[in-house]
Design a protein around this nucleic acid. Structure first.
Lengths: 144, 144
DNA sequence: CTAGACCCTCCAGCACGCTGGAAGGTCAAG
DNA sequence: CTTGACCTTCCAGCGTGCTGGAGGGTCTAG
C-alpha cells in the first residue's frame, strides 16, 4: 500500500508517516519501481501502536526504544515496564510543579481581588505580583 | 551599572538579560561611550518582577504585556487579574490532561505487572501497550 | 605595552512533534 | 499529449526560554 493509503488507514498524514520513518519509528519500506514507498499491511499495526503508546504519554524516543527491542527479537516487556515507571514518576513531578504553580496563582488571584489599582505605584510595577519594597538594600539573589 | 553587575544582582546571566531586552521585557538602556549597556537601579526591580511573575507561571509574553501596560502609564491590575485567571484555567486543563495520562499509565503498569513475556507475540509488538488483535478486518481509524 | 576581565553583536542550537512549501517525478485517465 | 492526483526529496519553521560560541571591542591594572 502506498503512503496515502496508509495515512488514511491510520489517521495520520503522509508527512507524519515520513517523519516517523526518519525518526526511526517505522522501518524504511520497499519501493515500487517508480520510487514510491510500498508498505506491508503490518505498518498499520505499527502506526496504531505508536499512537497507542503516545496516548499513554510515552515520547517518540521511548516508543522508538520499545520498537527497537521488539525488532531485535526481544520481548520488550521489562523495558516497557521500566519506561512506564519512569514516565509515571515524571508525571508525578510535573503534577507537583503544576500544583505549586496553581497555588501561587491562586494566592495572586486572591490578592488581585483585594487590590486597589491606586495601590499600584509605578515603582513596583504591579503590586499584585510583586509586593516587594523598592528600598536600596533589598536582598536580591539567585533563587533558582 | 553594567550588565555583569546587574546579572549578579538579579541572579541571571548577562546573556539572559540581553535576551530579555530583545524580548521586550527590559527597555534598551543607555550606553556608555564605549558602547556598554548602562543600567539604572530600577532595572533590578524590573528583573525581579519578571522572575516573580515567571515563578507564578506566567509566560514571558504575558509578563511583557503587563510591563507594556505599566510602561504606558496604566495600572495593569485588571489585565493582571485576567491573565491570572487564564493561566489558572490553563493549568487546570494541563492538570486534567496529566491526570488522564497518569491513569492510562497506571493501567499499563498494572498490565505490565501481570504480563508474561511469552504472551508478547511478535505481531502486536507489545501486548502491554497495545492489546489489539491483528486480524485483517480490525477497524483502525483516527482516534484523535 | 600586555594581560585579562568584561563587554559587544550575530548566528545557531537545544527539545518536541510535527507541518508547510518548493521543485520535481510517476502514473492513470481522457 | 495533457491534466491532475499522488508521490518524491530537501529545507525551514512553529513555540518556549534560554544557552553557547565565534570574533571582536573596551577598560583597568601592572
Amino acid at each position: 500500500m502506498r503512503i496515502g493509503e496508509l495515512a488514511a488507514a491510520s489517521g495520520l498524514t503522509a508527512k507524519t508517516i515520513r517523519f516517523y520513518e526518519q525518526a526511526g519509528l517505522l522501518p524504511e519500506p520497499p519501493r515500487t519501481p517508480g520510487g514510491y514507498r510500498d508498505y506491508p499491511p503490518q505498518s498499520r499495526v505499527r502506526l496504531a501502536f505508536v499512537r497507542e503508546a503516545q496516548s499513554a504519554g510515552l515520547t517518540l524516543a521511548e516508543i522508538r526504544s520499545i520498537l527497537a527491542l521488539r525488532d531485535s527479537g526481544e520481548a520488550p516487556c521489562a523495558h516497557v515496564a521500566d519506561l512506564i515507571q519512569q514516565r509515571l514518576a515524571g508525571i508525578e513531578r510535573r503534577l507537583a510543579e503544576l500544583r505549586a504553580t496553581r497555588t501561587a496563582l491562586r494566592t495572586l488571584a486572591e490578592r488581585a481581588a483585594t487590590t486597589d489599582p491606586s495601590s499600584c505605584t509605578d515603582v513596583d510595577i504591579c503590586s499584585i505580583i510583586a509586593t516587594r519594597q523598592t528600598s536600596d538594600n533589598e536582598g536580591l539573589s539567585a533563587s533558582g
